[in-house]
């Protein structure tokens, strides 16, 4: 019966009129308005307090693109990149060593991570710089010989201090990534006659990347901020530059604010990069990709004004 009726009204007959679109009055979120007003009020008070303070704000834009400051910014970024590269490369090796069946390599990796994760990075930086007390000369045979003090430049001390410390953290991240790959993958690879090393390089690591990449972005941003500690080894980074400029121009605090803004600028750029990198690696594993910040802003503005009936759906 019903089938017959459907056939008549279905494809041949005129389609039934669509039900009227719902025009309901959306829930009013008074709380959001009130909290937004309070937050803005508090922010205004805070800004006012800083503006009234004995800080010469004019100095910040004046020195923002000062050539010493820019040199510091460049050095900071360069040091971050090189130290991170060292950290990632060594971290992968350590992770593989740690997971190895060979008890010697596993123990070495364990001890490395134990030491470099267990001591403050600031202390490690100072130790690298002062290692000349232990090794007076560096002698790599015909390749390189020098006195330690000449060999261990501020840059090298900063690079080793940060990079070797970072490697310990990256090792743990990589280990988690490698262990996240299904064991069936290793078995299938072994069953095909592939060696341990081939299995790792061709099958396991490419799949581990999805788990490794997001926390690595985090580490990158962390490392950028940690570079401010290399003032301890007299490397000319952003903070060192800001301090120097502050001392000569007489605006120490102003230059610290300037440095903070620069750090924020760089980390913001990196955060955006990290976000899109994660989105890319989430492809295929998530049913729906997280919204981009712009989509989120649009959605929030829509729901705040209570005009957007779809709320978080985004347009």
């Amino acid at each position: 019966m019903t089938v017959d009726i459907d056939k008549v009204t279905g494809p041949s007959g005129t389609p039934a009129p669509a039900p009227e679109a719902i025009k309901a009055i959306p829930v009013r979120h008074y709380g959001r308005w009130i909290s937004a007003v309070i937050a803005l009020g508090l922010l205004g008070l805070l800004v006012n307090a800083f503006a009234q303070g004995k800080v010469n704000w004019g100095a910040v834009p004046d020195y923002f693109f000062d050539k010493d400051i820019l040199k510091g910014v460049r050095n900071t970024i360069w040091l971050t990149i090189v130290a991170m590269a060292l950290g990632v490369a060594l971290g992968v090796v350590l992770a593989v060593m740690r997971l190895s069946k060979n008890p010697v390599t596993a123990s070495i990796a364990w001890a490395y991570i134990w030491f470099f994760r267990g001591t403050p990075v600031y202390v490690q930086l100072l130790l690298w710089f002062n290692l000349g007390l232990v090794f007076e000369y560096i002698n790599l045979g015909p390749i390189y010989q020098d006195e330690w003090a000449d060999f261990m430049t501020p840059f090298l001390a900063a690079l080793l201090g940060l990079g070797l410390n970072e490697a310990a953290y990256m090792a743990e991240i990589c280990r988690a990534g490698i262990q996240s790959v299904d064991e069936g993958q290793t078995e299938a690879s072994h069953a095909l006659g592939m060696s341990q090393a081939k299995t790792l390089r061709r099958v396991v690591l490419p799949q581990a990347m999805r788990v490794i990449v997001p926390p690595t972005g985090n580490e990158f941003i962390n490392l950028l901020k940690t570079t401010s500690l290399v003032i301890a080894v007299q490397y000319y980074d952003l903070l060192q530059a800001a301090t120097n400029v502050g001392q000569t121009s007489g605006g120490t605090v102003e230059m610290l604010f300037l440095a903070a803004i620069w750090y924020l600028v760089v980390t913001s750029v990196l955060s955006v990069g990290q976000f899109y990198l994660e989105r890319r690696f989430a492809r295929g594993s998530l049913r729906q990709l997280p919204p981009t910040p712009w989509q989120k802003v649009k959605a929030n503005v829509g729901s705040l004004s209570t005009r957007g009936t779809k709320g978080g759906g985004g347009a």
Partner: peptide, 20 residues
């Protein structure tokens, strides 16, 4: 061991294809 396995093919219940 890997050399021995070359001559033995194996098919798994859960396929275990390399997804990448």
């Amino acid at each position: 061991v890997a050399a021995q396995r070359r001559d033995i093919g194996m098919v798994f219940q859960r396929f275990n294809l390399f997804p990448h």
